[in-house]
């Protein structure tokens, strides 16, 4: 059985933030994504993505964070610096 807690794991929330902000089909595998590796993740979408992630995790990204958000995995590292924990 899927519990509320499981679907709200930080990694799932981050995946969902990527899918929503970039306008990708539901269930799209975003974990390997890099900036500009797909047409949907362009400079226009990037700021939307930043804002969506900031709101999802209630954090504020500084210049280094915004410029460093070059891939999904880089984003995980940035969020860790902001105190978000990703288990497993």
């Amino acid at each position: 059985m899927v519990t509320t807690q499981e679907v709200n794991l930080p990694l799932d929330r981050l995946r969902e933030a990527f899918v929503t902000a970039l306008g990708l089909p539901e269930g799209y595998d975003v974990t390997g994504l890099e900036y500009r590796s797909i047409v949907e993740w362009d400079s226009l979408a990037h700021l939307t993505l930043v804002t969506t992630i900031e709101m999802t995790f209630d954090v504020m990204f500084d210049t280094t964070d915004v410029l460093g958000l070059s891939s999904f995995s880089a984003c995980v590292e940035i969020l860790k610096r902001h105190g978000v924990t990703f288990d497993g």
Partner: peptide, 14 residues
Amino acid sequence: RIELSRALSLHYQV
């Protein structure tokens, strides 16, 4: 809307 955003290469939020 999603199809159109692809076709125009514009973010769907605009």
